[in-house]
Design a protein around this nucleic acid. Structure first.
Lengths: 204, 204
DNA sequence: TGTACATCAGTGAACGCGCGTTCACTGATGTAC
DNA sequence: TGTACATCAGTGAACGCGCGTTCACTGATGTAC
């Protein structure tokens, strides 16, 4: 859908995409509404036809991120096929792949400082994403003997935390470029050790 | 050291502390040099007697953070006493305590976007902190049978990643206030499971 | 102890800038007849 | 098919603001004699 003169066609989505590009390039700080408008080939004032303002635009970018994220995680887990453990590891890899492939979304979701409760739509998308991860953890936890089975929401949180930490500390070239490891290998090894700790992988 | 008229006394450190307070309150985005100057009771121009500019001030705040951080981690690990595992768990708790007690430092260190290589002093402080953590991991790893002992730097990175992830996702009241767990418990349980996966804690 | 003077940490005014936001407007689009 | 008109997505000028930074300055401090 090319620009066609006075009317843009789909300015709303074009603004979201401009915002994502700028957020990925310059961080949430560097992102300005004016520059997003300029990138989309439009006057800053035009933004207000589609969004309430700067924050609202970021919120929509984050919302779309959560939707993609939830879809990818769901697809990667694949109902626990071929095995619960393998599917869970695939989910970890997909997490990292998401962060790398959609850096603008990732930053809008986790580093922009906007509250997940800013709009009902954003809250719903975020809740759905968390639900997908917890469902995967739930399925996995059925392979743990009940008497030492931690709550699924808890180890879902562990994996999410480690994944997020790896992304922030080791998957970004940006600050200091301290990358002694390949992030994907690092996360995969970490999840492996963790699953062994849960008794889901044979100790040897 | 109270203000004494025209000359401040120790403006440099007062500015760092004002910056830390503002960063903790409003995030690295919300921090402005002008407001830090105002908080310290001084004209914005005065800042330039002590720092090259805004970024340089943040870098110094981060540097002080790394120094405190390294000291606390070193102290918590306590050369591996009373046992390597217990000391390592204590280090995890200390990590979280640092993030809670020094939020301005934490944000300046990990969320301000300034490169760890911005100044030699900052790079040195950051390297020292990483060294402390890796030394702890090294000591711990001696209790793992050599044939399945991962590199110490690697599982140091795992623990750091999980700790950082817990801080970012679960220890902040800020965005969305999604705190289904106490962050300290969550991290402690996570580290426990991970150490069990390494064979450092008995599987039952 | 007192005076002259160098040092230096602060002031305050000024700058140019880009920001987010508002407003009255205008030109393009699509629909009713 | 052609015309009138309502709708609405854009413009462009303007705003007030606070920012980071610069500059010539001034007042306090500390030292030499």
């Amino acid at each position: 859908m090319p620009k066609r003169g006075y009317h843009h066609g789909n300015l709303r989505q074009a603004l979201v995409e401009a915002a994502l590009k700028l957020i990925a390039e310059k961080g949430p700080t560097g992102f300005t509404l004016s520059e997003a408008a300029k990138t989309a080939g439009v006057t800053p004032a035009a933004v207000y036809r589609h969004f309430e303002g700067r924050e609202d635009l970021i919120a929509e970018a984050a919302r779309q991120g959560y939707e993609i994220f939830a879809d990818l995680m769901d697809y990667a887990f694949d109902e626990g096929r071929p095995s619960a453990v393998a599917a869970f590891e695939a989910t970890g890899r997909a997490y990292l792949a998401f962060a790398e492939k959609y850096p603008g979304h990732y930053v809008a979701m986790f580093e922009s400082g906007i509250s997940v409760n800013r709009t009902p739509e954003l809250a719903a998308a975020s809740a759905r994403a968390r639900g997908v991860l917890e469902k995967a953890a739930e399925k996995l936890s059925q392979h743990i003997p009940p008497e030492r089975r931690p709550p699924a929401a808890m180890f879902s949180a562990h994996i999410w935390a480690m994944s997020h930490g790896v992304v922030e500390l080791y998957a970004r070239g940006a600050p200091g470029t301290r990358a002694p490891f390949d992030a994907a290998e690092l996360l995969e090894a970490g999840i492996g050790i963790y699953l062994r700790g849960l008794g889901l992988i044979a100790p040897d």
